[in-house]
Nucleic acid binder design. Sequence first.
DNA 1: GCCATGGCGATACGATATAACCTGGGATGA
DNA 2: TCATCCCAGGTTATATCGTATCGCCATGGC
Lengths: 154, 154
Amino acid sequence: MPEVATAVEQAAFVCASRGVQLTELRRQVLRLILEAEAPIGAYALLDKLRGLRAGAAPPTVYRALDFLLEQGLVHKLERLNAYMPCVETGHAHHDGHGHGHDHPHQFLICRKCGATAEICAPAVAAAITEAARAQGFTPGVATVEVEGVCANCA
Amino acid sequence: MPEVATAVEQAAFVCASRGVQLTELRRQVLRLILEAEAPIGAYALLDKLRGLRAGAAPPTVYRALDFLLEQGLVHKLERLNAYMPCVETGHAHHDGHGHGHDHPHQFLICRKCGATAEICAPAVAAAITEAARAQGFTPGVATVEVEGVCANCA
DNA sequence: GCCATGGCGATACGATATAACCTGGGATGA
DNA sequence: TCATCCCAGGTTATATCGTATCGCCATGGC
């Protein structure tokens, strides 16, 4: 997978331009997530990481994940408690507190093969914003995860 | 909260009409969820439940939760790993496998006070279905959880 | 009586996530 | 130069979430 290397390099560039460091540990974790075919859990990640650094413990992985999530380089899938790369590398909102992703996104999770696609459907985001405002609610980040069957498995 | 008692009675009626039992344990767990002001976690529920039955253990709570989820009496919030009542008591699809809810629903989670509202916005569900189909994906249940600020806290 | 079924007590375990504390290394500034 | 600070990350322990499995007992059909 040569794309993995280029994705890591692009992430390094984005981090450098923000004045934050994509350290060796963070690169390794990002690479492992990019290499996984489906969303990967924290402890599966930990197992793989131990092949690269023997002393790795849960906080090792979770701290790297926190960084990658803050920088918008990876997503967390709440239904699966698993992580996958962000297709639009580095769209975190870097304003003030600096957490999360600012581009709306949704996930399509195949119940057969586990493959998960990230899509960007502005119509969905707009419908959610409107529905929330109708309740007097000021919407922030929306988690949208759809379980179903992908085109390959159908 | 007199509404709690009536909600429990209505749930008992729904269960009876389906030929399943809302046992004393399940009633207690449902009641605790109804009495909570915000979504409540499994272990917080367990703590409260131990006030009613000393021997309660994790499986005690999880079995009751599984039942209540199957019957569509409660929802799970994936972002919080917590549970809350379903406003439309008993809309589970009782066809064959019998898991989950068949009415589309979305959650508005207040980041200030934790209060969570369930809403039903068909426009959101429609937008999601359309976006999924456009990718050749056959959508099933959609998880929609919006973090933001509620009307009270604004 | 016999046995299938379902509810549930009890133990153990696996998986997910965080708290608390410490160390080392590079930047900063007196 | 050296004291200081911040930050990345190591280390240990623990909280939280969720399952697997065993076994008991009551109910109800045969």
